[in-house]
């Protein structure tokens, strides 16, 4: 079980939280102008990285508020939590999907 640092309540066991999936997926401003491919990508396509992942969590059985977290999906270690609406703390630092042929940390 993970220990998750809620920005409001501090370290709490994972049981108090629900994971809301990948963060930073903005709903398109003008849905009517999207074709089926773009709409499908918004709804269904996910980064699913092996490495650092930005995801949404809600402290369901605590303060009840949403926040974002960076977590390593190989070790499950939480790297940082940060408020909704702010950019990911590692943005620009080669975040998101690993480039082709990049070594993947652990087996």
């Amino acid at each position: 079980m993970l220990v998750i640092t809620c920005p409001n309540c501090g370290d709490r066991p994972e049981l108090e939280f629900r994971c809301g999936g990948e963060a930073h997926i903005a709903r398109p401003q003008t849905p009517a102008e999207l074709d089926d491919g773009q709409w499908g990508a918004f709804l269904f396509t996910r980064t699913n990285p092996k490495g650092v992942h930005a995801e949404r969590w809600i402290h369901q059985h605590g303060c009840g508020r949403w926040f974002n977290a960076l977590r390593d999906t190989v070790s499950d270690r939480l790297i940082a939590t940060y408020p909704m609406g702010t950019p990911r703390p590692d943005a620009g630092a080669g975040a998101a999907p690993s480039s082709p042929a990049s070594p993947t940390s652990q087996p």
Partner: peptide, 18 residues
């Protein structure tokens, strides 16, 4: 479970989560 990883190396994004 690693299909997203392989397809990402191929430049394709998938509707998958592992």
């Amino acid at each position: 479970g690693h299909t997203s990883v392989v397809m990402n190396r191929f430049g394709l994004r998938m509707p998958l989560e592992s």
